Amino acid sequence: MSEITGNSTAASALRGRRLNRFRSALTGLIGAPAFRPALPQLPSTLENAPDRVDDLLLM
Rank of each mutant, 00 (worst) to 15 (best):
R17K: 13
R21A: 13
R18I: 13
R52N: 15
M1Q: 11
P33V: 07
R15K: 14
L58V: 09
L19C: 02
T5V: 15
L46G: 05
L42E: 01
E47F: 15
P43Y: 12
N20W: 07
L42C: 06
E47D: 11
P50Q: 02
L26P: 01
P40E: 14
F22P: 08
L29C: 03
S44Q: 08
S2W: 11
R15W: 02
G6D: 11
T27L: 12
L57H: 07
G6L: 11
V53H: 03
E3V: 12
S8M: 03
G31V: 01
S24P: 15
A34H: 14
S8V: 01
L19R: 01
M59I: 14
I30K: 00
P43L: 11
T9D: 04
S44Y: 00
M59A: 08
T9V: 11
T27H: 06
D51M: 03
G6Q: 13
S24R: 13
R52D: 15
T45N: 01
R21N: 09
R21C: 05
L26T: 05
A25L: 09
T5K: 05
G31Y: 00
F35S: 14
L14F: 07
S44G: 10
L42Q: 06
A32I: 04
L26W: 00
L29W: 15
A11F: 04
G28P: 01
F22M: 08
E3N: 10
A25T: 12
S12N: 08
P50I: 01
L29A: 06
T9E: 05
E3G: 07
T9P: 00
L56T: 10
N20P: 00
G16E: 06
A11Q: 00
A13S: 07
R15F: 02
T27D: 03
D55M: 04
